[in-house]
Design a protein around this nucleic acid. Sequence first.
DNA 1: GTACATGCAAAAGCTTTGCAAGGAC
DNA 2: GTCCTTGCAAAGCTTTTGCATGTAC
Lengths: 134, 134
Amino acid sequence: MTDFNAASFLDTLGLRATRPRLAIAHILFADGQNRHVTAEWLAEKVGQQGEPVALATIYNTLHSLVDAGVLRIVRGTGNDNIVFDTYTRPHHHFLDERTGELTDIPDGHLTLGNLPTAPDGRTIAGYDIIIRLS
Amino acid sequence: MTDFNAASFLDTLGLRATRPRLAIAHILFADGQNRHVTAEWLAEKVGQQGEPVALATIYNTLHSLVDAGVLRIVRGTGNDNIVFDTYTRPHHHFLDERTGELTDIPDGHLTLGNLPTAPDGRTIAGYDIIIRLS
DNA sequence: GTACATGCAAAAGCTTTGCAAGGAC
DNA sequence: GTCCTTGCAAAGCTTTTGCATGTAC
């Protein structure tokens, strides 16, 4: 974590090391933990640690990071906000219906018995499973 | 289908048989087929068949039908619009990533191998699976 | 110096709400 | 007559866009 270098991290992705991006990269990736974040949450977090960043810029950066392959968008959270996940490998989620909180399901703890065949000439790009908790 | 009686259908649900509701019930349930609809689509469809109905009323009615248990909201469609499904039993969906179109996966064609255990004192309320097609 | 990022404010899109007028029962 | 619905317009929210300013390289 202390040896996380946000500038070179961004450079590797082909993104310029601007102040907003450095702050965001640090918050999301410095400690190597998996996170589920919304633009709103991130904007507040950034603001707490220094200069605030415009929400539009937060969205810009999040989408850039998705394009760069280090973030992924989680479908089906049920609330309207886009949720970005720092864990990009295939995995699935628990959704707490009371709090809206999203947590990872440990890998290998969930398997699909038999995938149906894709209709027509389509191929299956992947699947998302949301387990609802009450 | 031709013997579908929208008025008594609504009555059974405890909803007054108003013009907008009759039109909507007819479109959604008269032929007994499963449908995935958005408020937008339904508003247009209603308008084609007679008097237009305000979008706010469409939403009102759709939510009333969800509350009555004859519609269900589909999570995770990836687009922003709420999708209502006339098929209320547990089942899952194909999502065509090119068109955004949602289709049912025939029942029994998809099973979860092993559900993970719910964390803490929570119970699993259900699960939603979206298979993405490309 | 140049191309890319930022920030602000405004636009866009979907959904909900408030309230007066209308209609079911 | 009473209570529920409707319709309209306006508000609410999240996300995106346009454009001038700023800045990394």
